[in-house]
């Protein structure tokens, strides 16, 4: 197992390099341009100067190597410096990855966005899982019962109605008509006492529930399917025949086995937390990583898009590994050697 993990980790390095190169090439090839969103009153010659000042005059391989250097050497050094609190080398001269739109270091932007994304999307994912498992279990156990039918229907609705629709409906009902929750997320809010905590909860309710509904809808179907598959297995009959209590059969034997694939699906979904939920963030103005990415993509802010997508790729590779390992741990029938 350890051997396997190490091998996978070794393999991950060249993989990620290749991925970063492909992303970079793709972004470079794309015909959108960082000056595309500027007012037309800025004449073409000035636009050309802007492009040059962004470093677009350099050939493609050079720019890629710069990015590699900045991402793998300069930025980690900077972070280390910040954590340790004393300068390492010539930190002022060290070039950082800068966003083209804000001209500020990309890593700082990402760090700034982390709290709200983790708060909203992370919580939504957590609640989604929390809701999905019991619903899935009951639906499967009482297949075709009213509860199952209702559950199926609700998850179908939750799944097929897009979040931008549910989001707006929520705003119209709870913000405009009832005035219960704010329609705009305040990223400046600092939780210091009960009243600001309460405010934070209020502003999180709507985005979190919209997203949690969506996540739960998806996941509960999966739990249900997995449970059904296990309920028909021989070992369940054996367990019942042995005279085990139904609760024990269901919650100890069946659930445990059914959760094997579910856990991996959950693990595989964790990177999406970091990529943010673009639509939901837009609607409630959570302005997290998702909004950062979409603005960057639309504005052809290549350094920012490159860095964000690459971090996302790292997370995907990492959680893929974790999912595989979990699979091995939970299901002894699977052997990696």
């Amino acid at each position: 197992m350890l051997n396997y993990t190490l091998r996978r980790l070794m393999f991950a390095v060249p993989t990620l390099l290749v991925i970063s190169f492909i992303i970079f090439a793709l972004l470079d090839l794309a015909p959108n341009d960082p000056t595309g969103n500027l007012p037309l009153t800025i004449p073409p010659e000035v636009r050309e100067q802007i492009r040059q000042s962004l470093g677009l005059g350099e050939p493609f391989p050079i720019r890629y190597l710069y990015w590699l250097q900045q991402f793998f050497i300069n930025e980690p050094l900077n972070l280390l410096e910040k954590i340790l609190g004393f300068p390492i080398g010539d930190s002022a001269e060290r070039l950082r990855i800068r966003s083209w739109a804000t001209r500020s270091p990309v890593v700082d932007l990402i760090i700034e966005r982390m709290p709200q994304t983790l708060m909203v999307v992370g919580f939504a994912y957590f609640f989604g899982v929390l809701i999905a498992i019991p619903i899935g279990v009951i639906s499967a156990y009482k297949q075709y019962s009213i509860f199952d039918q209702v559950g199926t229907f609700v998850s179908m609705v939750g799944f097929s109605v897009p979040t931008f629709f549910t989001g707006v409906v929520f705003i119209v009902i709870f913000s405009v008509n009832l005035q219960w929750f704010p329609s705009i997320y305040d990223t400046q809010l600092e939780v210091t006492d009960w009243s600001s905590f309460w405010q934070q909860v209020r502003q999180m309710v709507m985005p979190v529930s919209v997203l949690a509904l969506y996540n739960a809808a998806q996941l509960s179907r999966f739990v249900r399917a997995s449970m059904l598959d296990n309920l028909n297995q021989d070992y369940v009959r054996t367990a019942r025949a042995k005279g085990m209590k139904e609760r024990v059969v269901l919650l100890v034997h069946v659930l445990r086995n059914s959760l094997i694939p579910v856990v991996t699906v959950i693990a595989l979904g964790i990177p999406t937390i970091f990529s943010g939920a673009i639509i939901t963030e837009q609607i409630f103005r959570v302005n997290g990583l998702g909004q950062l990415l979409i603005i960057a993509i639309q504005g052809a802010d290549i350094p920012l898009v490159q860095t964000l997508t690459f971090i996302f790729a790292v997370l995907i590779v990492l959680f893929n590994l974790i999912a595989d390992l979990l699979y091995g741990i939970l299901d002894p029938r699977i052997r990696y050697d």
Binding site: D33, G36, N37
Partner: peptide
């Protein structure tokens, strides 16, 4: 055409307004 392409002025793209 997507606005960032149309107004982007990338000489490699055939779809710019220029």
């Amino acid at each position: 055409i997507d606005a960032s392409v149309f107004f982007g002025g990338d000489p490699a793209s055939p779809d710019t307004f220029q």
